[in-house]
Design a protein around this nucleic acid. Sequence first.
DNA 1: TTGTAGGCGTTATCAT
DNA 2: ATGATAACGCCTACAA
Lengths: 347, 347
Amino acid sequence: MSDSVVNLKQLSKSLGLSQTTVSRALNGFPEVSEKTRAKVQAAAEKLNYRPSPSATSLATGKSRIIGHVVPVSEHRMINPHFSDFVAGASDAYAEAGYDLLIRAALPEQEADIYRDFASRNRVDGVVVHGPMVHEPRIKLLQSIGLPFVVHGRAGDEEHSYSWMDVDNRSAFEQLTHYLIELGHRRIALINGLESMNFARRRRLGYETALSDHKLPVDPDLVTSEDMNEPYGYRSTRRLLEASSAPTALIYSSILSALGGLRAVNEMGLRPGKDISLATYDDRLSFLQAGDGAGQSSYFTSVHSSIQDAGRRVGEMLISQIKDKNSAPKFELWKSQMDIGKTTGPPR
Amino acid sequence: MSDSVVNLKQLSKSLGLSQTTVSRALNGFPEVSEKTRAKVQAAAEKLNYRPSPSATSLATGKSRIIGHVVPVSEHRMINPHFSDFVAGASDAYAEAGYDLLIRAALPEQEADIYRDFASRNRVDGVVVHGPMVHEPRIKLLQSIGLPFVVHGRAGDEEHSYSWMDVDNRSAFEQLTHYLIELGHRRIALINGLESMNFARRRRLGYETALSDHKLPVDPDLVTSEDMNEPYGYRSTRRLLEASSAPTALIYSSILSALGGLRAVNEMGLRPGKDISLATYDDRLSFLQAGDGAGQSSYFTSVHSSIQDAGRRVGEMLISQIKDKNSAPKFELWKSQMDIGKTTGPPR
DNA sequence: TTGTAGGCGTTATCAT
DNA sequence: ATGATAACGCCTACAA
């Protein structure tokens, strides 16, 4: 009730015990007698004792904070994908008594920020977002010795660090395969930025399916950009207005799929009839409904919840922080395919 | 280059100066001679000196961290609105040398978390998100003495705390007015949760416009829920399938407007022709395009960038933290109206 | 202009 | 099982 706060010294004095004993009692050290511990805990509660994070951090070298550095460039990393990921991660952190810290940074500052994070333990670990095909942050963090988990994977040395990823390649292979089976021959891929590893994998999956069916890979049918709604709209219009338009389009994100849907509607084409649309779906929460009436069940898609991914990455990172010299852990999640209303045989 | 890091003591020893002088030189105290300061700065750079945040925090009582507590309930606060706000805020923080901290919490824990934040200065201030009509957090924070800025306003005592808000009421009055002028008589409002102050204000604006034109306020035409896509879809369908359907719908968020658009398309209605849709638009970045081809220019809307709001709230909070006993500051932003393609006279 | 010394609130190492 | 005491790394009176 009271807003007055007490420190260790005051608390121990009020108990007639030393700070050492009180500290040990509160932190669950086994040598403290149960009777003492109970008394201490009761008094701590009553006097509203809360340890000072900075003092604890200074003494232990642990901050109980997880860092996320987000680039502020043209390709902003803060978008609905990020926020859903963060929702999951912060949940996992809170459960374990950690806080989430965000630092906005220009891309060229990023390395320095990691050094800063590590050198004075502002954070106990970081999550690496949006790994590129060749990802310099990984060896940097390794050399610094700052614990980290990658959301996704980089192109090489997958066994030297911890990561959690979805099966981007097989997901897109499956989606493409499905469209081919429906009879489509010209299938476009509205991909994310292919400097990012996930996008490269998705393209590989797409190309693999085409090749398996002896279909040509037409570079004019593939676009690569930051995934947002206008991009989906723009590229869809351009592709469909071209001379040899595709009969089906695959989107790397439901955000661009939404843009594609808008384009298609505007052109008077009926999804699933005149044109087929399929997408990767991160199950973004603002599109989700309990009754399954959200966009997610509308689109034909492969999906995996990015919020769940955030939670899992958070858990992995915390367990790694707690057991510093544990071996790297990897987790590859299978995406699930759902047939929605937006695909059908070509006209 | 080197990852080795040096502390104040080592740095000052290497310079043959006292820690005091070095500290003062680095922190811009005027009494240090420029020659000394230059030498110190050069050495700090060279030896890769970085002050320890926990030590600094312990000594000064300042953490240089801004807290955001986000409820993890059914009505998640982490959504695209939040992430755009955070993008702006974290930018402002980074510029001022602050970090952003997120703590997920059950609603009933929130009060305790604020106490925790304040008592041991884990954070120097907080942003209050989603103020309700009656907002207990405000007097709590005031009694605790933790600096805060409200994004939005609570219903009462607007002059006792700092806030930044948009003119929700007049924005919705204007939008409704416009639709009435077009000839609409039955206008629905797909509102946010009316326990939230912004939603109540929006409804007031809507009702004011109706009353001004001697139009009845039909409660069946107003819905109030968490703003997401499925909600927009569901309520739009329900309203349009009813016996006396509205000819125009106003959405409190582009997320639900997107759902409404989906419903309307599905029902074979042409937006702007058979049915009119208007929305409040927070200019969410994932819907924005440089070329103006995003959803934002498509919908008839009143808009104001929530990312800019985040930046501004961040600035306000930091300036308040720096000047503790400054008077409360208020900022009310005017939203701008844009006529898009989704409105027209009723059929 | 610079330096000395104590304090911020914990944890951890030795003792006892 | 409990207690003194020295870190942790910085800031800041107070002195010089």
